[in-house]
């Protein structure tokens, strides 16, 4: 207060009165109005939760249906079809080099060799077919080299 007298003598002489007023019973009513607002706020919060669940319901239902269908189809296949048959199915399908490489990497050694032995090697060639294949894929020097070995 002393400081105020020094820096602002006119201001310090003024009465510190609140010049503002409010409507009658404003503070008596305010608490009740606030209570109503809070009740409304609670309803909004509840509605929001309810709406989110409602929005998610169809998506969740769809996802659950897909999961059930997947389980119904995948689990019997996995359980009842023997592993060898599955490998055979994989091998007989047409794959790109990369896909084939990754499939082969996934096989253990014994599966790999059994796959090789079971391969479609029972095709027979006539001498003419063999001659035509060799002459179209190898030159004379390569044939000479192979026969020397």
């Amino acid at each position: 207060m002393e400081e105020l007298k020094n820096i602002a003598p006119n201001l310090s002489k003024m009465k510190k009165e609140n010049p503002f007023g409010t409507p009658k019973h404003y503070f008596d009513d305010f608490s009740a109005r606030m209570q109503m607002q809070i009740e409304a706020e609670k309803h909004v919060a509840n509605d929001k939760d309810f709406k989110i669940i409602n929005l998610l319901k169809p998506a969740l239902g769809l996802a659950a249906s897909f999961a059930i269908i997947f389980m119904l189809v995948y689990i019997p296949i996995k359980t009842f079809i023997p592993q060898e048959q599955v490998i055979e199915t994989i091998a007989s399908t047409n794959y790109s080099d990369n896909e084939m490489h990754s499939i082969l990497e996934g096989l253990d050694e014994s599966s790999f060799f059994s796959l090789l032995n079971n391969d479609d090697n029972d095709e027979t060639f006539s001498d003419d077919d063999l001659l035509a294949y060799v002459s179209s894929n190898f030159n004379a020097y390569e044939i000479f080299e192979y026969t020397e070995e």
Partner: peptide, 8 residues
């Protein structure tokens, strides 16, 4: 609801 005088 301003109830102050001129000085205020």
């Amino acid at each position: 609801y301003f109830e102050g005088d001129e000085i205020q």
